[in-house]
Design a protein around this nucleic acid. Structure first.
Length: 929
RNA sequence: GCCGGAGUGGCGGAAUGGCAGACGCGCUGGAUUCAAAAUCCAGUGGCCUUCGGGCUGUGUGGGUUCAAGUCCCACCUCCGGUACCA
């Protein structure tokens, strides 16, 4: 016999546990029998279990991927055995920059690279025995997939957000105001474009000429590219935006209904960053620049305002600010504009022109990151003009400083240095006046700070402005020392509003400002609209055309493709040159027959930006339900039957953006009637990262990456799966350990030997396994195990479930004979975790059919009950002995049994028992004197 | 700075307010073997011990309770998120 034949013989006949043989065997069996094919519509109870689909990188899978995938697979297999209809698909988030960069280097088309990577990922996932319905596999790069991504974009483009109804509606239903109508033919179209959920702006991008690409903010460090350290230029480019901010309120409120961890919800809430406050107008006059207060004009303006009310759009004679602390208006001693604020130039006095221009230019060069990260010290410059504080008529100077952001609120603030840390720092820096308008109503002393002055003296100093604090109503800061303040603070130096607590002040001044037409309540969000275009080739093309005039220049009119004109594929013939000297998208160099279109005698140029990678992942969970549908993105009947996703598992790195974007799209689709619910993911679980064996983040460059191929070759897929679950709680961050894999492999070996006769020539049962009635103890162990494993699965506590099965195995290996029925139950319990080994053992136990669908074992509470139990006895809370008592023993019986225990009796002798605490079934504790 | 999460043996971790350290790794000793691997058995938080046991122990300091890893207060450390959001 040659070596190969010997190996073949030993592998196929010798009944040692050999995953290298049985794993491929069962994978083929499942595939051939379509064991995990999911019906079009659920039969009975449904469960939609979704993994965050991977980006198929060239490196292949690493052991972090299968963590969540194993967890969901276990949940799916467990539920199938409970008779639930389970939807469990897998696909590929396949657009992405690496394939395009590879194309620039080698000329290999991105699609080719992508398909090769997908094939490798698919092979690796199949190797791990996940019970996906592979018939539903999709990639975001499939033409048949992204035609519907484009279709959804058309829905977004065709939708405006009705604020009063808080929902998206067809753009055709947008009411056109008369004054717009009056502006002429083109005005209504322009008005509509301004209200669409998809709109265009000129936005700054980080263009890196050396790399020939536009970089994301986080790829720019200290003004140069993160990779290579090349120069990065901030330049403006026409971009598509999605109006996610319109949905900010709903995105925040609807979190309440979701079964997500509070931590993740909070992360999203903070990202959305809703705040309530007021917008207030400060008079600046119309003869600019304004050097001194124009008292008469100001009075006239105020009179006008009290008649007209607060205008929707701010005029040119005023500066509109947003504040959450309108109660500190009397403390506003200066104002600040963001350098990009449109009023900066008008407000700059001639003698300040040079300084302001230089400052703004310098600010423009800084990236957002530099502006925050490096700017420890406040910078700014005075414009030379003043505004009038509407509550007291005071003239206050207007400054320009980059600590005010153009993208938040109105891009202008009133500065209250007495009660805002940032304004305080700025005022100190530039020697601006500080006026306290709040005093604490009680004092509390923080760590290391003792203030021995009487409260009245403290208040006097606050009123005179010698000391002040920034803050909200619960925490204050006396300049730099922290002090806890429990009671609300009280207003001072605020004219008619003195002695009001903060909340009441806010309410009152909001009313008064509104009545005078100077202010109104307002809500703001940190959330920004979504920059939706990328200057890449390898992404979904926008289904949009730009109209050209006779000279080939864009007219500004946009024409959307009709849904019937989809899909719009990428051009087949593209040259990928590494040199790319303009920030314009690569598609600008697409062949003319792709780039230019003539419809009804008009020439159009296609949009050449492409969509970001987020686009495809925003709705893939819908397409899985009906992946081949050519008429709709998903059949409504199918969608209603399966949605929402009942369990969504993925990394916490997507806790904010992906989940927010997907929820946003889903709500738009809901508003427009394309889906039946307004939230896609009911329950969310974030698996923790798996670190390298050295406790560092796993990566190729650190040399601590673990390749699943190796682990499977060495130990088998079941061992890999089992170990990933045994390491610790799913949500915890935990280090890899090859010794640990070897440990769970040992467990599988033991399970195998418990059931199979290893010494036999052929596959046959261990002689100890017999059809016998289990002893009471065996039965108790069996049913305790079933109960515990079931409970652990229900709360996704996989590590403890595995340890229960280890205890079972440790016990039964010592038992002879071993009841065959008990062995079968264990195999069923094990099957979601180690499906290949379980199938093989199930077959060995004489079953012809896969164990994917037999009913999940039930436990019998009566079998678990013990006759006598051991109960600890404590004296003064310290363990002093144990007693054996009937399980049903009541308090009195327990106490007397405890007193009768010789050791306890000895220790109690001569002492007075003050109290005896007896918890039946648990413990006895004597409190003695 | 702010917001989350977590600190338990040599390591990963387990414990509805009720016997801390389940289960696994590692380690020690033994059986088996010509030997090794594999397997099996026993032990394994620390200190002390007359070998009965005793004391001590869940980041630190306080508190509540008959009883605290678990609840409360303060602090320390680590990890993650965020970054002038008015």
């Amino acid at each position: 016999m040659d070596a190969a034949a010997k190996r073949r013989r030993s592998e196929s006949v010798m009944p040692r546990y050999n995953p290298a043989v049985i794993e491929p065997k069962w994978q083929k069996y499942w595939e051939k029998n379509r064991t995990f094919a999911c019906p079009r519509l659920p039969k009975g109870r449904k469960l939609y279990v979704l993994d965050m689909f991977p980006y198929p990188s060239g490196d292949g899978l690493h052991v972090g991927h299968p963590e969540g995938y194993t967890a969901t697979d276990i949940v799916c297999r467990y539920n199938r055995m409970k008779g639930v209809s389970v939807m469990h698909p897998m696909g590929w988030d396949a657009f992405g920059l690496p394939a395009e960069q590879h194309a620039k280097k080698t000329g290999t088309p991105p699609r080719e690279t992508t398909e090769k990577n997908i094939a490798n990922f698919r092979r690796q996932l199949r190797m791990l025995g996940f019970s996906y319905d592979w018939d539903r596999e999709l990639a975001t790069t499939d033409l048949n997939y992204f035609r519907w991504t484009q279709w959804i974009f058309l829905v977004l483009y065709d939708t405006w957000f009705d604020q009063s109804e808080q929902r998206g509606r067809p753009i055709a239903e947008l009411p056109i105001p008369e004054e717009v109508e009056a502006e002429g033919e083109a005005a209504p179209e322009r008005y509509r474009d301004e209200h669409r959920l998809a709109y265009q702006i000129e936005a700054p991008v980080n263009w890196c000429p050396a790399l020939g690409t536009v970089l994301a903010n986080e790829e720019v460090v200290g003004g140069v590219s993160e990779r290579g350290g090349h120069m990065v230029v901030r330049t403006k480019l026409r971009q598509w935006m999605l109006r996610i901010t319109a949905y900010a309120d709903r995105l925040e409120k609807d979190l309440d209904r979701l079964d997500w961890s509070e931590g993740i919800k909070l992360l999203q809430r903070n990202w959305i960053g809703r705040s309530t406050g007021a917008e207030v107008d400060f008079f600046i006059g119309d003869r600019l620049p304004l050097a001194v207060s124009q008292q008469e004009e100001y009075e006239a303006w105020k009179r006008r305002r009290s008649k007209t009310g607060f205008p929707k759009k701010p005029g040119n004679d005023m500066l509109r600010i947003y504040t959450t602390r309108a109660d500190t208006l009397f403390g506003a001693t200066y104002m600040v504009l963001a350098p990009e604020h449109p009023f900066v130039e008008r407000l700059t006095a001639p003698e300040q022109r040079e300084a302001v221009r230089a400052y703004c230019e310098q600010a423009a060069r800084k990236s957002d990151l530099d502006r925050t990260d490096l700017a420890k010290e406040k910078t700014g410059v005075w414009t030379g003009s003043y505004a009038v504080n509407p509550v007291n008529g005071e003239s206050i100077p207007i400054w320009v400083a980059d600590y005010v952001l153009i993208s938040y609120g109105t891009g202008a603030i009133m500065a209250v240095p007495a009660h805002d840390t940032r304004d305080f720092e700025f005022a100190e820096q530039f020697d601006l006046p500080i006026r306290a308008v709040l005093k604490a109503s009680r004092r509390y002393f923080g760590w290391g700070y003792v203030d021995v002055r009487p409260l009245s003296e403290w208040h006097r100093q606050q009123e005179s402005g010698e000391i002040c604090f920034t803050g909200d109503e619960s925490k204050i800061r006396i300049c730099q020392s922290e002090v806890e303040l429990l009671d609300p603070s009280i207003s001072i130096n605020s004219g008619p509003y003195n002695d009001l607590p903060t909340a009441e002040f806010k309410r009152k001044i909001a009313e008064d400002l509104a009545a005078q037409g100077i202010g109104r309540a307002a809500v703001n969000y940190k959330l920004r609209d979504w920059l939706f275009s990328r200057q890449h080739f390898w992404g979904e093309p926008f289904p949009l055309l730009h109209e050209l005039d006779d000279d080939g220049r864009p007219t500004g009119r946009v024409r959307a493709l009709a849904p019937s004109e989809l899909p719009l594929d990428l051009p087949a013939e593209m040259a990928f040159d590494a040199d790319h000297d303009r920030p314009e998208p690569p598609l600008d160099k697409a062949p003319d027959d792709w780039l230019y279109v003539t419809i009804d005698g008009r020439r159009y140029k296609r949009e050449t930006n492409t969509m970001p990678q987020w686009a495809g992942s925003c709705w893939y969970y819908l397409r899985f339900l009906d992946p081949k549908n050519a008429r709709a993105l998903v059949d409504p009947q199918v969608e209603k039957a399966w949605m929402p996703v009942d369990l969504y598992v993925g990394g916490a790195e997507h806790a904010v953006l992906h989940l927010l974007y997907a929820r946003f799209w889903h709500k738009v689709l809901f508003d427009r009637g394309h889906v039946g619910g307004d939230e896609p993911f009911q329950k969310l679980v974030n698996q923790g990262m798996i670190l390298g064996e050295n406790g560092e983040k796993m990566s190729k460059s650190r040399g601590n990456a673990v390749n699943p191929d190796e682990v499977v070759r060495e130990y088998g897929a079941d061992s890999l799966r089992l170990f990933e679950m045994f390491m610790g709680p799913l949500e915890a961050v935990k280090p890899w350990s090859m010794d640990g894999v070897s440990g769970v492999r040992g467990f599988l070996d033991r399970v195998w030997r418990m059931i199979v006769d290893e010494r036999a020539e052929t596959m046959q049962l261990n002689p100890a396994v017999q059809v016998v009635k289990p002893s009471a103890e065996q039965n108790r162990v069996l049913h305790k195990t079933i109960k515990a494993v079931t409970a652990d699965l229900d709360r996704m506590s996989f590590n403890t479930a595995i340890s229960r099965m280890m205890e079972f195995t440790n016990f039964f290996l010592k038992q002879e004979p071993r009841p065959r029925a008990a062995m079968e139950k264990l195999v069923l319990l094990l099957s979601p975790f180690a499906p290949h080994a379980a199938e093989e053992l199930w077959a060995a136990l004489g079953h012809d059919e896969s164990l994917a669908f037999p009913p999940w074992p039930e436990f019998d509470e009566a079998a678990i009950k013990e006759d006598t139990i051991e109960v600890p006895v404590q004296i003064g809370g310290k363990l002093r002995g144990r007693i054996q008592v009937p399980a049903e023993a009541d308090k009195a019986a327990l106490e007397s049994a405890a007193r009768a225990e010789p050791k306890i009796a000895e220790l109690l002798a001569g002492k007075t028992v003050v109290k005896a605490i007896v918890v039946p079934g648990r413990m006895v504790n004597f409190v003695v004197k």
